[in-house]
Nucleic acid binder design. Structure first.
Length: 271
DNA sequence: AAACGTGCCAACCGCGATTAT
DNA sequence: CATAATCGCGGTTGGCACGTT
């Protein structure tokens, strides 16, 4: 069937978001939630398509986002999950709180991939490059080892990994990794994803905690109220927000034109 | 100091999946 | 059940920042 464009491109703004647009989007979502992305731009007074709003919110404005480079531990989790799941960035991101699929994807393409190649590991199969041709039927699932005896909790913290990946990590890890990284090196064989508890865990529904306030707002909270809440440090979300706010502060802002206590600015300050 | 090259990341595009009618 | 509308994902690109020559 023919598919219509997600939005009418005429009159729809594109390109980098401005601080003012961010402010509008944030105040709207915090006040009303985002029951329907398509309606968000119109209701929020933005000349953007809903898709763009969703992307901006999920990848940048969401208050629970972490910022900065992935830690060694996070990177290791990404590598391991990628070995099992492939380019299913959203699934991988779901296991790294505060990280977005876009962020992980970018980090993979710009950092991890190169690192693996440099270490002689095929970033697609997670196999040593020189072995690649001699084991045609091998895929990541057969290469990557999984310790199926590991407890779920341990698995959630750090998943098992292939010998190759472990080698890479051992070579490339920073001194801080050992402390942050609790990965067991007890690799073992795993016959299939279906039987792998890690993969089960990964593939199981990963519902939101329900704690995300922007999903639950009913429209009863207005920006003024939010600002007073913010002023009193009783933010509607938890500790992750501190980082968020600090990050905005790090951009050098205290723009009073923004949503009061929320120091919002454009994504990179230069935009 | 200027020109050029490279890296990085925010944002866009297209498509499949899901939901609504 | 068929079609339309919407959402969400993964791949790709554009442009800025930074490094090198």
């Amino acid at each position: 069937m023919g598919r219509q464009p997600c939005c009418d491109k005429l009159g729809v703004k594109r390109g980098p978001w401005t601080a003012e647009e961010d402010r509008k989007l944030i105040s709207f979502i915090l006040s009303n939630g985002h029951c329907c992305w398509r309606a968000v731009p119109k209701l929020a007074g933005l000349l953007r398509c809903g898709k763009s709003c969703r992307l901006r919110w999920t990848n940048y404005l969401r208050p629970d986002l972490k910022r900065g480079l992935l830690t060694d531990a996070e990177e290791q989790v990404v590598i391991d999950l990628h070995a099992k799941l492939g380019n299913r960035w959203s699934k991988i991101a779901a296991k790294l709180p505060g990280r977005t699929d876009n962020e992980i994807k970018n980090h993979w393409n710009t950092h991890i991939k190169k690192k693996l190649i440099k270490m002689g590991i095929d970033p697609v199969t997670h196999e040593p490059l020189d072995r690649k041709t001699s084991s045609p039927a091998t895929t990541s699932q057969s290469v990557v080892t999984a310790d199926s005896t590991k407890s779920d909790e341990a698995t959630k913290q750090q998943s098992p990994q292939s010998d190759a990946v472990r080698d890479v990590l051992a070579d490339s890890s920073s001194p801080t990794e050992s402390s942050a990284n609790t990965v067991s090196t007890g690799g073992s064989s795993s016959s299939s994803h279906d039987q792998d508890p890690l993969v089960k865990w990964l593939l199981e529904e990963d519902p939101p905690t329900g704690d995300e306030p922007w999903l639950n707002f009913t429209g009863s909270v207005d920006v003024d109220e939010l600002s007073s809440i913010a002023a009193g440090s009783e933010l509607p979300w938890d500790g992750a927000t501190d980082d968020w706010l600090l990050d905005y502060q790090d951009f050098g802002l205290g723009d009073s034109s923004l949503v009061d206590g929320y120091m919002i600015n454009s994504s990179n300050g230069a935009n």
